[in-house]
Amino acid sequence: MKPGWRFYAVGFAVLMAFDTLSQLCFKLAALHAAPFAGDWPWLLRVAREPFVYGAIVGYLGAFITYMGLLRHAPVGPAFAASHLNVVSVLLVSAWLLHERLNPLQLAGAALIVTGILVLAGAERDDGAAAR
């Protein structure tokens, strides 16, 4: 059975959420375990950092979600659409980490969203033909 747009919308939203969770947790773990050093004390500091486990949960969730999407979605457009996390990580880093966004980054985010809408439209219009 060919899934409808709802399957893809929910699937990619969940994928984006898991991806964003892991990126954010990685950043917070790195900040808390700073200064970086490629040695055992640093690794131990990282292992005691709860955010690392949030990052692992995010990775596993994203993996399971992506494999579920790939069951129906063609891999070419699906891989491209998975870059939606670039937009969400950008917005979350501005909102929670107070990183500054410049106009180029905002334009890039708008292009990514436009591209995904184009893919979604293509899928809706000729999705019945499969593949």
Binding site: P77, Q105, I112, G115
Partner: peptide, 13 residues
């Protein structure tokens, strides 16, 4: 076109 737009966006970011 959709993939090209996404790629362009990722490059801009």
């Amino acid at each position: 076109a959709g993939v090209a737009l996404i790629a362009a966006g990722v490059i801009l970011v």
